[in-house]
Amino acid sequence: MAGAQLLFLLFALATCASAVMVVVSQNVVRMAFWLIISLGSTSALYFLLHADFVGATQLLVYVGGTLVLLVFGVMLTASGPHVKIKMSPAEGFLAAGVGCLFLAMIFFTVIPVANDWDEVVIRLEAQNDVTDAGGGYNALGEGNTTRPLGLSFLGTRPDKDLNSTSGTLSTGYLLPFEIVSVHLLVVLIGAAYLARAKRRVDAEEA
């Protein structure tokens, strides 16, 4: 698995470095650019985790959709080509210090979790009557998770139940899926209304 580790290092470095660059840059468009690199490398990490569908969704919805929307927002709200709303150096140092402390805190919580993870897996297997040790959904074929994901949105869980020994069936995500769809529709209408309303007032004033 050395090849996978190499790729992991590459994309992990790209993700972290460009996330730091998002914080450091003062120009909004450059921030957007670094954010695109960061989220793109995160999707590569998803592919390395055998999560093909999530990775593709990340590219399509996040990078191709949400970020383009953000860049549009930057363009519509910028008064000049290079907008800088600066913060003072003191604020910057303070933020860096707090950030480092925060990061250290999370690291020291992550390390024991990762160390004890094997025991956690054993406990989870015992609690859920799952026999497949360490395989996860990997047995379904190297990241081809599209079908099991689709089925879980329809309310059945072959990825879980095929490994289970208890004979009970797991519940899927049909209701959350429906709620999210309706939520998206509402948001679509709401955002369109919010973005339009002001313009009409402007037209009346002018």
Binding site: G40, F53, G55, L59, G64, G143
Partner: peptide, 15 residues
């Protein structure tokens, strides 16, 4: 060769 090939192609083209 992946199961979500078409989805991924559209995703990449959208970049």
């Amino acid at each position: 060769a992946m199961d979500c090939g078409l989805f991924l192609i559209f995703a990449i083209l959208s970049l």
